[in-house]
Amino acid sequence: MREPVDLRRRRILAAVQARGTARVRDLAAELQVSVVTVRRDVEELMREGKLRRGHGVVRSPLPAQELPEHTMADGDTVAVVVPERHSYLYETLHGARTVLDAAGLRVALHIAPQVPGAERPQVERALADGARGVLLAPRWRDPAAEEADHRWLAELDVPTVLMERRPPKGSALHAMDSVCSDHWYGAHLAVEHLVGLGHRRLVFATRDDSPTARTLRAAFAEIAGAHPLVEEWTWALSSSRGGLDHEPTDVPDLAALLRKAGATAAVLHGDVDALMLVQQLAEHGVRVPEDCSVVAYDDVVAGLASPPLTAVSPPKGEVGRVAAELMLRRLDGVPAEGARSVQRVELLPTLKVRGSTRPLLAQ
């Protein structure tokens, strides 16, 4: 005998309220009815305000703090793996979390320590704990470390999205979803800003510890080298983190380098190194921006400096949000014949003009 609709819906409500969340397909199996039937019931219960929809799950309308800690159903977790002590990527994490929380998915944060190959154990642990997908931002201090991760990442059997990382063309990860900032465009913004203020002799300084740093070094060289209004430019390390398997590279005295090059402006990756340069210049009687304009790259703490630093601001939170949205689409379970194409998304940075840059005065 078919179960009355009202009774079935009461059972659905009871199951969801007991767990906090439940998958439609699991409810259908428990009630021994079709997924279509449960979806119709859920739609009606949502119209009555008795249920809320998450991503692939049904949720209780009770506030999260009123639910017991164990109510998240098994498998309703997405792992986010980011490097230790990386405030830039923590902003990306928060962007991803807003999307995943709204979809009814729990974020399991894994911090990869500063040792080579640290991400793999964290990912394996997350998968052993039942994570349905992985959002990942490997440290990849050098190309060798990146290449070492390609094979095992390509063999993961859950949806995986890289954040702020762009695998090389033709690599094993070329066909993996990824979302990152267009750092070439960020370098372009910095150069055009300074050239527009009349600066013709520039110093660029980047770190040596990430794919972003390597991308920026190449971008600055390409853009400044081809720019008709840039008379002289030079590149140097802003700081060297070094790998644990080799000694940090010597970092030049940037204030001395600016004097030697006759440069009137500098772009530094990242914020802390730019702040340190401003302090170093002040110790040598060089005023920012009167004597030298400074642009930071990252915009995590640039606005807190004195003077507040003009900065290229990659869309850190937006990278996380878009990556999480890609993840949700993968978790939809689209049949193979209707599978979505792999996406390699690039988002454009913006320039935040503050007090550390000004037009070059006639000399």
Rank of each mutant, 00 (worst) to 15 (best):
A187H: 03
A324Q: 09
K169E: 15
L93P: 01
E124D: 10
V322D: 14
Q114P: 01
P116E: 13
S210G: 05
E155V: 03
T37G: 00
L229M: 08
R165G: 02
L89Y: 10
D271L: 04
K169P: 04
D182S: 13
H193L: 07
L258W: 10
P61Y: 15
F220Y: 15
M327D: 08
Y90F: 15
A15M: 10
R120C: 06
S313C: 08
P113H: 15
A103L: 11
A205D: 15
L89M: 14
L27W: 09
S356I: 09
D245Q: 14
R97C: 14
K50W: 01
R53Y: 12
V295L: 04
A282K: 06
D149M: 09
H284L: 13
R287F: 13
H227Q: 07
D209E: 12
V33N: 02
V36K: 08
A126K: 02
D271I: 02
E146W: 07
K169M: 11
P116F: 14
D250Y: 07
R47K: 10
D298W: 11
D273V: 01
P349F: 12
A148P: 01
E164Y: 05
V319I: 15
S306Y: 14
M163T: 03
V42I: 11
V24P: 05
G186N: 05
R59E: 03
L51C: 04
V312I: 05
R141K: 12
G54E: 09
G320N: 11
R344H: 13
L27C: 03
L268R: 02
L100G: 01
R11I: 06
L281F: 02
R132I: 03
R10M: 10
S313E: 11
D332Y: 14
G198T: 09
E290R: 09
E222W: 08
V312P: 02
A265N: 08
H94P: 01
L237A: 12
G270M: 01
A255M: 06
P143N: 08
P252Y: 11
D74R: 14
V82M: 08
E337P: 07
Q122I: 00
L229Y: 10
A213P: 00
